[in-house]
Every structure is written in C-alpha cells, then in structure tokens.
Write a protein that binds this DNA or RNA. Structure first.
Length: 493
RNA sequence: GGCGCCAUGGUGUAAUUGGUUAACACGCCGCCCUCUCAAGGCGGAGAGUUCGGGUUCGAUCCCCGAUGGCGCUACCA
C-alpha cells in the first residue's frame, strides 16, 4: 500500500494541512495552514488539504464547510483535495493488515471497560504512567486466530519495540528523542474497524508522498509513534517541523474563553484578510536578516521570505491590539480599486446601497480610510458619508448639540451655505468663520455642532473636508434640519 | 505524577552564531498640531536577557541545576 511510483521529482516538496472538522477553523489551525501554504508556494511545492474526520462522533459537515470558508477567506488555496479520511478506510485497514502480518502489530481483545478499570487501579496504586500493560501482545497466534474466528471483537495495537529510543530531527526544535519504554502499545485500528489518528496520519502521509510535516507543536509527543510506523513500514521519514502554539493573553492555550478564536469571526469583525495573514505570519516566525525591522509584508513578500528556519521555538501570545494595528495599516494603504470592493460587502451586509455617484463615494472612502479601524466602520460610524439615512450618536448630540442657541446658529449657517457659489474646503471654512465673526460667537462650537449635524458623529475628518465631500445640497439640508435632531431618535432626512 | 519542549520590557520579535549604550514594532505615558479624535507629528518610560551555579579575559548566546509555562499522557485528533 505504499505507492513507489512517484513520477514527480523527489525535490518537489509536498505538504498538507490536515484539520479535523470537530470545530471551526481556529487561529492556531489557520497559522498552521498559512505556514504550510507559504512553504508550498515558496518552494514551488504542493499543498494538500486533508480532512481528518475519523472521529465520527465529533466530526460534522458544517465544520468542514466552516474550515473551507476560513481557508478561502485567508486566501489559502490548496492544490490537491480536499481528501476525506472517512472515505479512505480501506487504505488504513490494509496498512493495519500489513503491520499485523509483519508482526509489528497485534490484536488486542481487551475491552474499553477493562482498560478503564485497570487504568484507574494503576492510578491509585502508584504514580506510574497509565500505559497499556501489553497483555494481549503475548497471546499465541493460534489462540488469537481462534478468538478472532469466534467473533470476539479486537483492536489492533502497534507493538512498540523494546530497548532503545525513537527520535527524529525536527526542523524547528532539532533532535527530539523518546525512550521506547515511555511509548505505549497504541491502538491503530479500533475494534469497530475505524482507524485512530495514529494510523491514518501515517498511512495517508506515506500514501500522499508528503515530504514535510508542518503542524502544531502539540503533536511532538505523538511523533515517535508515527516514526515507529514509518520504520515498520519501511517508508522514508518526512521532515517534521513543529510550530509552537498560540496562547491567549493569559498565556494559556487559546480557546473560546479568550473570545474570538474562529478565523471567520475576524472577518465578521471587519478585519481584512491580508492584515490577518500578515499578523499571523509574524506570530512565531521572522523573516531572515535584512527584514528585522519590518512589519508589513505583502503575500508575495511572505512567500518569498518564508523558511522553516525562521520559525521560533517558543509559544506566542495572540495580541489583539497588534492585529488591530495591522488592520488599520492595510485599510489605509489600500487603493481606490481594492478598498471599495471590500467595503461594498459590508454595505451589503448592513443592508443598504449608497446612493451617491461613484467618484464621490471613492473620495469619501479616501477621506475616511486613515481613521478606519475596520471594514465595518464604513457601514456604521461612517454611514452618513454614503447614505442620507444615518444615526446620530446620542453622546455626540449631547456633547455638541445640546445648546439650543447653537442649533439655531446652524440653521442660519445653512442659509449662508445655500448662497455659496463655490463649495471647496477653503470656501466653506471662510463662510463659517465669517459667520462666526458676524454673530460674535466662537467658531469652535459651530464647527463641532456642524460635525454632528452632518455626520452624526463627534469624530470625523476635518469638518471642511467633510463639507467639500458631502457637497452643498447635503450640507445645507442637514444643517437646516439641526433643530429637529434628537439625541435618542436615530434617523435624519 | 511521568515524558517532552520552551524561557529577551506588558505583547511579537532582533541582537555579524561569545565582545552591542540589548534593537525594532504593537501597546502605554506625555507634548505639539488643531474644529473633534479612535487622525497626524515629536518625545518618554519600560528588559540588563526567569533564578543559581559553572566554562571563558569576556556571556542573552555554551554546560549543569532549579523554577515557571506549555504540550502529550484515550479504541480524540
């Protein structure tokens, strides 16, 4: 079952991302996927997507779809697959047969209940590791055959060789070794004929001719079990590269407790995929010399610079603030081509279509993007720039429009603007300041009040730039209706 | 408990693979600009490299130990 007919040059790396669909694509998995993708693209190798769904209890189709969605959002395309382990059961059974036939594995008739009982007893008696006692390993083959024939259910266990130790050279951690005495005779095939992870990974990794296994460091302890199988099967060992884990702010393993851990939830938060990718790439990896002081890397940069050597050994803490920073950097760097496309999705989700001419919309986006923290801002706090139906932030109204006199002045001001010939940034400012002088009031309150009346927000770009963008008609109309703005009401116009 | 791995400011990482005033970014603090700030500009604090021993003329870097954190310890993956 080990295909030796590899037509492709041995030098072409083949890697895989092998999530198990027992949950959504979480950030740790996403980074593993990213590293595999970067490695494949950097080396011109092949990325395979394999769904490890041999745990029928916990796997589901929605989770598979969720994982694919996350991959697509991050722009991580794969070359082969997705393959489903649930559809490759024959391969695993045959591999188990091979191991059985060569004496590297044996049938185990112990029931799950018995094992649990013994484990509990062991735990009580001493602090020794609860390992399988190998009692079925010594059953005479004829007797075993007889029991099998009698229909007694059995699992297949790997016979871990005595003596020595088993190790491997990890591309990240270096040489790692385990004493064989510490490795238990693990189950390859459950009594229902379904393989365990230990068997299916190895059978597939060999069958798919993988050259590099890039995965989370939580698999380090499993690796010797896999190395043993490669040896028993006479297969050549791939290069293992274990990637340190991502921890939450409290330095415990990232989990739901830490809030958003699903990749898709970041999309929903208005994070742009490139920012997320950039952020993830720098979590546990650094580009080589000459790029130490750089933070922003395009996908092409990352692909070009990526190497296994740059992966660090220690766990990294997920820092939301830094992700937020990457996001603002990307948003403000996007050109008038890309950003609007992303924003349109947000508008669609928010359920409205901007009515203004395209050039004005682009100009507004340009004006706003230095202040945007995420894509959603364009559909929420920036809504007044794209729609005549928008909310007034109650706090902003309370702060700058609570004074009735100011409102009255704004209405008067609207008349000045109605008479304006030009509507440039400079001209709108001249008009306002002249009006303030004549009215013997300070420009500040007028400016702040206008801002709220025009945008519904206390925070915005320079007021006159906003006016120039909004245009005369809108400015006049919104200022004129200043009197009717109510803090608690939400709609204008 | 056993086994394995890791350890540089709050966070992510650097430091010609033993010689640096230990660097950069995020965050934080302050100041400036100003019509607002979640914008921009400028500056600052913050680690003597977890701790203790070695080796060395000299250790962030090499060795040993301790401590701490994380992972694994299933007929889960």
């Amino acid at each position: 079952m080990i295909p030796q007919t590899d037509m492709s040059p041995a030098s072409t790396p083949r890697v895989r991302f092998a999530p198990s669909p027992t949950g959504y694509l979480h950030v740790g998995g996403a980074r593993t996927a990213l590293f595999n993708w970067l490695f494949a693209r950097h080396t011109g190798g092949t990325l395979i997507l394999r769904i490890e769904d041999t745990d029928f209890e916990r796997s589901s189709e929605e989770m598979v779809e969720g994982i694919l969605e996350g991959m697509r959002w991050l722009g991580l395309n794969w070359d082969e697959g997705p393959f489903f382990q649930s559809q490759r059961l024959d391969l695993y059974r045959q591999t188990a047969e091979t191991l059985l036939a060569s004496g590297h594995a044996y049938p185990c008739f112990c029931t799950k209940a018995e094992l649990e009982q013994r484990r509990a007893a062991q735990a009580v008696s001493a602090g020794c590791p609860p390992m399988y006692d190998r009692r079925c390993r010594t059953i005479d083959p004829p007797l075993a055959a007889q029991r099998k024939a009698a229909g007694e259910p059995f699992a297949v266990r790997f016979a871990v060789p005595d003596g020595r130790s088993t190790g491997f050279d990890d591309a990240v951690f270096g040489r790692i070794e385990f004493a064989n005495a510490e490795i238990e005779d693990f189950v390859l095939l459950r009594s229902d004929g379904i393989p365990t992870y230990h068997l299916s990974v190895v059978a597939d990794d060999i069958d798919m001719r993988l050259t590099h296994i890039i995965r989370g460091a939580d698999h380090i302890s499993n690796t010797p079990k896999q190395v043993l199988q490669y040896q028993a099967l006479g297969a050549t060992l791939p290069t293992f590269a274990h990637v340190p884990l991502i921890l939450g702010p409290d330095k415990t393993r990232l989990s739901k407790r830490h809030g958003a851990t699903s990749v898709i939830s970041y999309k929903e938060l208005g994070i742009v995929p490139e920012a997320f990718r950039n952020f993830l790439a720098l979590l546990g990896w650094t580009p080589g010399p000459g790029h130490k002081d750089r933070e922003i890397f395009s996908s092409d940069d990352l692909i070009q610079l990526f190497s296994l050597e740059g992966i660090s050994k220690s766990n990294a803490v997920f820092d939301n603030d830094k992700l937020a920073w990457f996001n603002t950097e990307y948003i403000r760097a996007y050109d008038a081509e890309k950003l609007p496309r992303l924003i349109e999705e947000e508008w669609a989700k928010a359920g409205f279509t901007p009515t203004r001419p395209r050039e004005e919309i682009l100009a507004a986006i340009d004006l706003l993007k230095p202040r945007a923290r995420n894509l959603k801002d364009f559909a929420t706090i920036f809504r007044a720039y794209f729609s005549d139906t928008f909310d007034y932030d109650p706090a902003a109204v309370a702060k700058f429009l609570s004074d009735g006199a100011v409102r009255a002045f704004l209405v008067q001001l609207s008349q000045r603007y109605a008479a304006a010939r030009e509507f440039t940034e400079a001209e709108t400012e001249t008009i306002l300041r002249a009006f303030a002088d004549e009215s013997r009031i300070k420009a500040g309150p007028l400016i702040n009040g206008s801002r709220v009346a025009l945008t519904g927000q206390a925070v915005a770009p320079s007021l006159f730039a906003v006016m120039a963008n909004l245009g005369k008609d809108r400015v006049v109309k919104r200022l004129a209706s200043s009197e009717s703005i109510k803090a608690e009401s939400s709609k204008a116009d």
